[in-house]
C-alpha cells in the first residue's frame, strides 16, 4: 500500500541533491553573477503574478487621484507651474553656461569632463514587496524597452541605483544604499574623490578610506565622478552628514545622506549613453516619450 508510507530514503536523497543544487545556484548567482539570463526568463514568467499583486496599489493610486479635491489639484497645478518656470529659467542659464564652458574648454584644449549627451526614459516603480534583505525596487520597463544590466537609474533629485535583473517588461534596480553597492564620487566643493558605499537598512552612505586630512565638510555635495563607467559624471549622489576623525586614526569616518531619498521615489529615470544606444521607440507601450537632450 504505497499511499500510506512515503519512501523516506528516496526523499532524503532527493532532498540532499536539491540542497546541493541550491548551494551551486547560490554560488553561481551571488559570487559569479552567472545566472542573469535564466533569472530574466523566470522573472518574465512571474510577471503576471507581479502585475496582479501590483494592481490594488495602482488602482488605489488612480482612485485617490480621481477623487482628490479640486482645490488640491489646483494647488498642485500652481506649484508645478512655478517649478516649471524655475526650471525653464535655469535651463536658459544652463545652455549659456554650457556654450561658455565648451568655448573655455576649447581655449584650454582640454576634453570636457561632463557628458551631456544622454537620453532618458521615465519608468514607474512597481508596488510589489521584494526581498527585505536587499535594498531594491522593481520598475515597469525591461529589455523590451531597451533596459540593460548595469544601467544607471536616477530620480529627479539624484542618483538612485543601477539595474541588476532584467525581464522582458520589468527590471529590478539595486539602490545605491544597498550594502553591496558602491560608486565613485567626487566632492563638488573641493574635488576630493571617494567611494560611496551603501550602508544597508539605515539608508545612508559611507565613504571609506578618506584620509583624516581630506578636505571634506558636513553639507558638501558629492557628485558622480564617472570613473566607474556605470554612472556618467556630474550627477548629485549624496550630501555629507558627518565627519568623525577618531584620535590617532589614519582615515576619517564619513557618513552621507543620498539626495534621491530612494524609499520615497515613485518614478525614476533610466539613462542611456546616447553614443551607443537610444531607447527603442514603443509609442503604444510607453506613454512617456523618450526625451533626448542634445548638447
Amino acid at each position: 500500500m504505497n499511499t500510506l508510507f512515503i519512501q523516506a530514503p528516496a526523499i532524503t536523497l532527493r532532498f540532499l541533491m536539491l540542497l546541493l543544487f541550491s548551494a551551486a545556484i547560490l554560488i553561481a548567482d551571488h559570487r559569479y553573477r552567472a545566472l542573469e539570463t535564466p533569472r530574466g526568463w523566470l522573472l518574465t514568467m512571474m510577471q503576471p503574478v507581479q502585475a496582479i499583486a501590483d494592481w490594488p496599489a495602482q488602482r488605489w493610486h488612480r482612485w485617490s487621484a480621481a477623487v482628490a479635491a479640486r482645490t488640491h489639484l489646483l494647488e498642485e497645478n500652481q506649484r508645478l507651474r512655478e517649478t516649471n518656470h524655475q526650471l525653464a529659467i535655469e535651463h536658459q542659464r544652463f545652455s549659456t553656461l554650457q556654450a561658455e564652458n565648451r568655448r573655455l574648454n576649447e581655449l584650454l584644449q582640454s576634453v570636457s569632463v561632463s557628458n551631456p549627451a544622454m537620453s532618458y526614459q521615465l519608468a514607474r516603480v512597481v508596488q510589489v514587496s521584494l526581498d527585505p534583505h536587499i535594498q531594491q525596487v522593481q520598475i515597469n520597463s525591461g529589455s523590451a524597452q531597451g533596459v540593460f544590466l548595469g544601467q544607471p537609474v536616477i530620480s529627479s533629485a539624484g542618483v538612485f541605483g543601477q539595474v541588476v535583473h532584467v525581464a522582458v517588461n520589468s527590471a529590478q534596480v539595486l539602490l545605491l544604499t544597498d550594502i553591496s553597492h558602491a560608486l565613485p564620487v567626487v566632492n563638488q566643493r573641493s574635488g576630493q574623490r571617494a567611494i560611496a558605499r551603501g550602508e544597508g537598512p539605515s539608508g545612508l552612505l559611507r565613504m571609506p578610506f578618506l584620509a583624516a586630512h581630506a578636505d571634506v565638510q558636513p553639507g558638501d555635495l558629492w557628485l558622480t565622478s564617472g570613473l566607474g563607467k556605470t554612472f556618467p559624471a556630474g550627477y548629485p549622489v549624496a550630501r555629507l552628514k558627518a565627519v568623525v576623525i577618531p584620535p590617532g586614526a589614519e582615515f576619517a569616518e564619513v557618513v552621507a545622506v543620498p539626495v534621491a531619498q530612494p524609499e520615497k521615489v515613485q518614478e525614476v529615470l533610466l539613462l542611456w549613453p546616447a553614443a551607443n544606444h537610444a531607447p527603442e521607440e514603443h509609442p503604444d507601450e510607453n506613454p512617456v516619450e523618450a526625451a533626448v537632450i542634445d548638447e
Partner: peptide
C-alpha cells in the same frame, strides 16, 4: 526558486529553505 526570482533575492536561498521545510 520562483519566490527568489520574483523578489530579486539570492537565487536558491528560499528554494533551499522551503525544500528543507517540506522535507
Amino acid at each position: 526558486l520562483l519566490v527568489d526570482v520574483a523578489t530579486g533575492g539570492l537565487m536558491g536561498l528560499t528554494a533551499a529553505v522551503l525544500s528543507l521545510q517540506a522535507y
